[in-house]
Simulated scan of single mutants.
Amino acid sequence: MKQTTTASGYPIVPRTEVDFDLDGDIPRYWFGGDAFKSRFFDAMSTLFPEGEKFFISCVRDYKDEIVDPELQQQVKDFMRQEAQHGRVHKQFNDRLQAQGVRVDNIEAKTQKILGRIRELMPASFTLAQTAAAEHLTSIMAHSFFDRPDVFAEADPRIRAMYIWHGVEEIEHKAVAFDVLKNVAKAGYFTRAGVMLYTSVMFPLHVFLILRHMLIVDGYSFWQRAGIWARGLRWLYGWNGLFRPLMGHYLAYYKPGFHPWQDGGMGAYERWRLAYARNGGNAVEAGNEAYAGAA
């Protein structure tokens, strides 16, 4: 299989045989028994299958205009990786459906919303959405690698799934951006403005889904209020999940920004070697990479 390397020197590798034992005995609250932390990542997972299809479509809009053979191959590998992410998260989401979460409704509404955006907005806007979302997911992935405490209490199988997803987000983090800048010829204000829009809409949708999940789980209004208070402090507090990401996030608004200017690759390299050493066992690779970061 032909592969190209990114500006980082690393290939974009579509890994199609990953298995995380998602049909196993994974607890409902797989993140240290914490309802908010578990459901926050669960809520993101429900958006991925339709979101990945949307990203593929938005990049494909410009596929015939790409003349650089390296970028052409990167786009193909990007699409294959995103399609695989959607399939794995679909399997994960089947667990949520069995718990009473209306994943079918969430996916149908997501598909309708994203389809409507593609109908109403120019292709450059939706491609800029894709580039913005790719930046957000890649900086989260870098953070997970750089801060081993983040997933210390998570079930190893789900942790491995998000680490694998993060690895591939890092590998292709510049593809949509390069198509946006070099093929779509979108300007700075499109890039920056759409990032602001995405930065509001993405967490809003995650929180609405998280609210539904906590209701499904049977928590009363006051119980949910306490869960939200603790959870939002975990996300946005001084020592929260997102504060260390702010510098990486704000870098996107620099006029001369490019995704390969940002993010260390040491932990990524550790996972890549562990994955090869373990014969493509993504759970073992995730455990090794995480232990090495601790």
Rank of each mutant, 00 (worst) to 15 (best):
E107A: 12
L273T: 14
F36Q: 03
M79A: 15
V183Y: 00
K63S: 13
V216W: 05
A108H: 08
L22K: 07
Q111D: 11
W228L: 06
G263Q: 04
S45I: 00
T110P: 00
I56P: 01
R15T: 09
W222T: 13
G100N: 08
W238R: 14
Y249Q: 06
T6D: 07
F125I: 14
A98K: 15
I158P: 03
E169V: 09
I56R: 04
N281L: 04
M1R: 15
S199I: 05
A225W: 08
L250Q: 11
D64F: 07
K90I: 00
L196H: 14
L22G: 06
Q84S: 09
F207Y: 12
R277I: 04
D25A: 15
I163R: 06
M44P: 00
F31M: 05
A282D: 03
I227W: 01
N93M: 04
V103P: 01
L120V: 14
K2Y: 11
Y249H: 09
A291Y: 10
M140Q: 10
M161L: 15
W164S: 03
I12R: 05
K2E: 15
A108Q: 13
A282Y: 04
F242Y: 14
K181S: 15
F151E: 02
G240N: 12
A128K: 05
R157I: 06
L250M: 13
A293T: 08
Y10K: 10
R191M: 09
R15A: 09
I215V: 14
F177R: 02
A192P: 05
K63C: 01
G115W: 00
A176Q: 04
D217F: 02
F177A: 03
A174D: 06
E65I: 06
H89S: 01
T130K: 02
L47P: 00
I12F: 07
E168S: 03
Y249T: 03
Q74W: 00
A229I: 10
Q129E: 09
Y29M: 04
E153D: 15
V194N: 02
V59G: 03
R95W: 00
Y197H: 12
Y290T: 10
G240A: 12
N281I: 06
N239Q: 15
V206I: 14
A225D: 07
H205L: 10
G166W: 01
A289H: 05
G115I: 02
T198W: 09
Y219S: 07
H89C: 00
W228T: 03
W271E: 07
